[in-house]
Amino acid sequence: MPRKILKRLMPEHGSIRDHKYLRMFGSRLHDSNLWHLNRHSAAGAFAVGLFCAWLPIPFQMVVAAAGAMLFRVNLPLSAVLVWFTNPLTMPPMFYFAYRLGSFLLNRPHHYEHFEVSLSWLAGAMSTVGPPFLLGSLVLGLVSSAIGYMFIHGLWRWSVSRQWKRRRQGR
């Protein structure tokens, strides 16, 4: 069951291989392990994709693809899971990361007047940056571990349920 759902949601092999930012990986994209979908590759892809979704950097999909190649997990699924971070979800996610980092560092929250300029960003990064980056790292690690365990457990449960149905003759 999870395999059918995931296969339906994943982009095509060719669209990932021909993506303009992923072409730099060249022939490494032809590794068959990156395209298989099984319990281990799906759970690993969830771990890589969810971790990369919390990275406050541009081109998260490229980092997710590199992580998928490094750990030899399903590349399309890793790349798609990065889309969890989008313009609608980013502000609450990153605010929560900042609040968590402030809590872990035992720092007060700094609510400064927001301004769209490089000088404001440079000044704010000295006060807001460390808690934000720590919170992002912690949330990335936690969501990665939870995603891995959840998909691994869901896959096992689904397979055992199918075997039970076969034994009962349904």
Rank of each mutant, 00 (worst) to 15 (best):
F59H: 14
M90F: 14
N86E: 09
T127D: 11
M69Q: 09
T127W: 08
L37V: 10
R39P: 03
S78Q: 02
V63I: 15
V128R: 08
S119M: 09
F46N: 06
L100M: 08
I57T: 15
S78A: 15
S143D: 01
T127F: 08
S102F: 04
S126V: 13
L104N: 05
S41F: 03
H109N: 14
V142K: 04
L137D: 03
L105N: 15
S126G: 11
F96Y: 11
L34F: 02
L139K: 01
S32M: 13
P131L: 10
S41P: 06
F46V: 06
P87L: 05
P76C: 02
N86Q: 14
V73F: 02
E115D: 05
A68P: 07
L100A: 05
S136K: 01
F103H: 06
P91N: 11
A47I: 03
L134P: 07
H109C: 05
L55E: 01
P108H: 15
L104A: 07
I57Q: 09
L137K: 03
L55R: 03
S143K: 04
W120L: 02
S144I: 04
S136Q: 00
G135N: 02
S32E: 15
Y111T: 11
H40V: 15
A47H: 05
N74S: 04
H109Q: 13
L139H: 00
P58E: 06
L81M: 15
V63F: 15
G44M: 09
S119A: 11
M90T: 12
F114M: 02
P87K: 08
N74G: 10
F59W: 12
A65G: 13
L75P: 02
R72T: 12
E115Q: 10
S117H: 00
Y95S: 02
R107C: 08
A42Y: 01
N38H: 10
M90V: 14
L104E: 08
L55N: 04
F84D: 04
N33M: 12
F94R: 05
A64S: 12
Q60I: 05
W35D: 07
F59A: 14
S78E: 04
P131A: 08
N86I: 14
L137M: 12
N33Y: 08
G44Q: 07
H40C: 04
R107K: 14
A97S: 12
V142A: 14
L133I: 13
P130F: 04
S102I: 05
V73M: 05
L118C: 02
F84L: 11
L137G: 09
L141G: 14
F84Y: 10
H40W: 15
V80L: 15
M69D: 05
L104C: 07
V62C: 07
T85D: 14
N106I: 06
H36A: 15
G123L: 13
V48I: 13
E112Y: 13
F96W: 14
G67Y: 06
T89F: 09
L81N: 03
V128N: 03
S78P: 02
P92W: 03
P131C: 06
G44H: 05
A145R: 08
A79Q: 01
F96I: 15
L70M: 09
L141E: 03
N106A: 15
V116A: 10
R99S: 00
L118W: 13
V62M: 11
H113C: 00
G140W: 05
S78H: 03
